[in-house]
Simulated assay, not measured.
Amino acid sequence: MEIRRISSEERLTHAFPLQAYAFEASPAPLEEAEKLREYLPFQEDNLTLVAEEGGTSLAAVSAVPMRQNVRGVLHPMAGVAGVAVHPLARRRGHVRTLLTRLLGDMRDDGHPVSALYPFRASFYERFGYVGLPKRRHVTFAPADLGHLVRADLPGELIWERSGSGYDAYRAFTLRLAAERHGFAVFPDYRAERLRADDARWIVTARVGGEVAAAAAYRLSGYGAELVVDDLLTTTPLSRALLLQFFARHVDQVERVVAGIAADELPELWATDLGTVTESRTRVPNANAPMARVLAVPALAGARVGPGRAVVEVVDDPFIAGTYLLDGRGGQLEVGGDEPGVPRATLNAAGFSALVYGVLDPDDLPLRGFGAVPADAGAQLRTLFPRAVPYLFADF
Rank of each mutant, 00 (worst) to 15 (best):
F127W: 01
F127V: 05
G128V: 03
Y129M: 04
Y129T: 00
V130H: 06
V130A: 09
V130M: 11
G131C: 09
G131H: 12
G131R: 10
P133E: 03
K134D: 00
R135F: 15
R136N: 00
R136K: 11
H137N: 02
H137G: 07
H137S: 11
V138C: 02
F140N: 02
A141F: 00
D144H: 03
D144C: 06
L145P: 04
G146M: 12
G146K: 08
H147R: 14
L148N: 04
L148F: 09
L148H: 06
V149Q: 13
V149T: 14
V149S: 06
R150L: 13
R150T: 15
R150A: 15
R150Y: 15
R150Q: 14
A151N: 07
L153G: 01
L153C: 03
P154I: 00
P154D: 10
G155E: 08
E156K: 06
E156H: 08
I158M: 13
W159D: 15
R161L: 10
S162Y: 10
S162V: 13
S162D: 10
G163N: 07
S164M: 11
S164I: 14
S164C: 05
G165E: 08
Y166C: 09
D167L: 15
D167S: 14
A168V: 04
A168N: 08
A168P: 13
R170S: 05
R170Q: 08
A171F: 10
F172A: 02
T173E: 15
L174C: 08
L174R: 12
R175W: 12
R175M: 09
L176A: 00
L176T: 04
L176Q: 04
A177E: 09
H181T: 11
A184I: 01
P187A: 00
Y189L: 01
R190F: 11
A191Q: 06
A191Y: 03
A191M: 04
E192W: 15
E192V: 12
E192K: 15
R195N: 01
R195G: 04
A196L: 08
D197F: 13
D197A: 12
D198W: 05
D198E: 01
A199E: 09
I202A: 06
V203M: 05
V203K: 00
V203D: 03
V203C: 01
T204Q: 09
R206P: 12
V207E: 06
V207A: 00
G208D: 02
G208N: 02
E210S: 15
E210P: 13
A212Q: 06
A212M: 11
A212Y: 03
A213N: 10
A213M: 03
A215G: 12
A216L: 11
A216R: 03
A216P: 09
Y217F: 14
R218V: 15
L219S: 07
L219P: 13
G221H: 05
G223A: 11
G223L: 12
A224K: 15
E225D: 14
L226S: 13
V227Q: 08
V228M: 07
V228C: 01
D229W: 05
D229S: 11
L231K: 02
L232F: 05
T233P: 03
T233Y: 14
T233C: 11
T234H: 09
T235H: 05
T235E: 04
P236M: 13
L237R: 06
L237M: 04
S238W: 08
S238N: 02
R239H: 05
R239P: 08
R239M: 04
L241G: 03
L241H: 01
L242N: 08
L242V: 10
L242M: 05
L242P: 09
Q244G: 07
